[in-house]
Design a binder for these strands. Structure first.
Lengths: 225, 225
DNA sequence: CCATTAATCAATGGATTTGTTGAATATAGT
DNA sequence: ACTATATTCAACAAATCCATTGATTAATGG
């Protein structure tokens, strides 16, 4: 019954559903956040500095495309990525942007230079330094993200609490702070504050999903309910 | 100078450039075609059944996102994918659509059932059958696509010329026809015509870029000028 | 320099998408 | 049942995107 043309139109329309879901900066930010683990609408709204209503609508857009699914829990709705492939999609798009657009590194370098924060480790460099010296690994994301998955042995210390809990950290070791990934600013602020207070500190550019994709171990607290 | 928020906005805006390039069915069709090799605007327009003007505009959209680049050759402009990663992007999106949307297989199966063409090989199955019997591999795409890259040993016989050149084909061997990929209809028509004329024929679902991605060999004619 | 061919540009109206606002819904606890 | 909280829904104006049409540019061959 369907003509060749109608068939092709239908197929490409389906593929475009994926594209349309990731054609908006805010939706990409939501995906990036959801790569850290399941979150409620309100959490996502706060972390992305969007209104709840707007967040909800974008989430429904993502849901239409099956990139995320929702679970009702009391009056909350917990959104999460459909599966690993969704996180991989985000990483693929981010990688292509890095690869193709000079603006990407220009923006990043200008921003980091202003903050004297160009220096950073990647996962491989970290792995190597860990064989040579003893480091303190600091996860500065909110605790619920730490709970979902973190570097084995990393200490959880959300950046908002950092100022009040500096005393917990050793001054004789270099502190490596990480957060959500190369474009997340939490570890930036953490390193800045640590250095101001006389600590030796450096940022890890990669986030959990990055090193997980590279095959490095991630530990999480199971059965969060 | 830039605030955290401005930085994030700028970054996600860059990533969204990729997404916006692939949010339209017609642009995905163009990418799919360009996975077969470089083509002029007029070729792309014809193969996608779009107007030249519309094709040109979509190509510029793709070019803005650096997914394709253009080379001037006389009064022609030859568009081609920027690199392998662009083809991989298309295959990723197509894969997610297959994975997430039941509509994808529903559409395909309904279409194929109508044509009694559900039966098909994939690359692995072909490889295996090649060890057991002698098959004729038929590349039914236009010759210029065959020239860019094809299965080693495949015979080029564009589907439009098939009717007039049936005599060139052996009746004692099964003929395996392939084209651009799982959603291309060329091999469908080829198999239909072959069977009507008493040949044993079957479709290969995968296309060149699919088996190339799986590590199978592809041969092409170098130095096309 | 003119004609031809290939492709882009420009302008149009129509359709889709977006952010905002405030109202509606749904669940849990009292 | 009433209240509070979390989220979605509905509606609207602003912005963006799209296909079509016809004009324009650019290169080639005479």
């Amino acid at each position: 019954m369907g003509s060749d043309r109608a068939f092709k139109d239908a197929i490409y329309e389906q593929i475009a559903r994926v594209g349309r879901a990731v054609d908006h900066p805010r939706r990409l930010e939501l995906l990036d956040l959801l790569c850290q683990g399941p979150m409620t609408v309100e959490q996502l709204a706060r972390k992305s500095a969007m209104s709840v209503s707007s967040t909800s609508q974008h989430l429904q857009h993502l849901r239409e495309a099956r990139l995320v699914r929702v679970e009702h829990r009391g009056t909350f709705r917990v959104y999460e990525l459909t599966d690993e492939a969704t996180c991989e999609l985000f990483r693929t798009l981010r990688g292509l942007a890095q690869r193709y657009y000079a603006e990407m590194s220009a923006i990043t370098e200008a921003f980091l230079r202003d903050r004297e924060a160009l220096e950073a480790l990647d996962t491989v460099a970290l792995q190597q330094r860990l064989t040579q010296e003893s480091l303190t690994l600091l996860d500065v994301r909110p605790t619920e993200e730490y709970a979902v998955g973190h570097w084995p042995g990393a200490v959880s210390l959300p950046v908002e609490e950092l100022a009040g809990r500096l005393a917990e950290l050793p001054k004789d070791q270099t502190i490596v702070a990480y957060c959500r990934g190369p474009y997340c600013v939490l570890s930036l602020h953490a390193v800045e504050m640590l250095r101001k207070n006389g600590y030796r500190a450096i940022r890890l550019a990669d986030g959990v999903s990055d090193w997980k994709a590279q095959g490095f171990p991630v530990v999480g607290v199971k059965g969060v309910s």
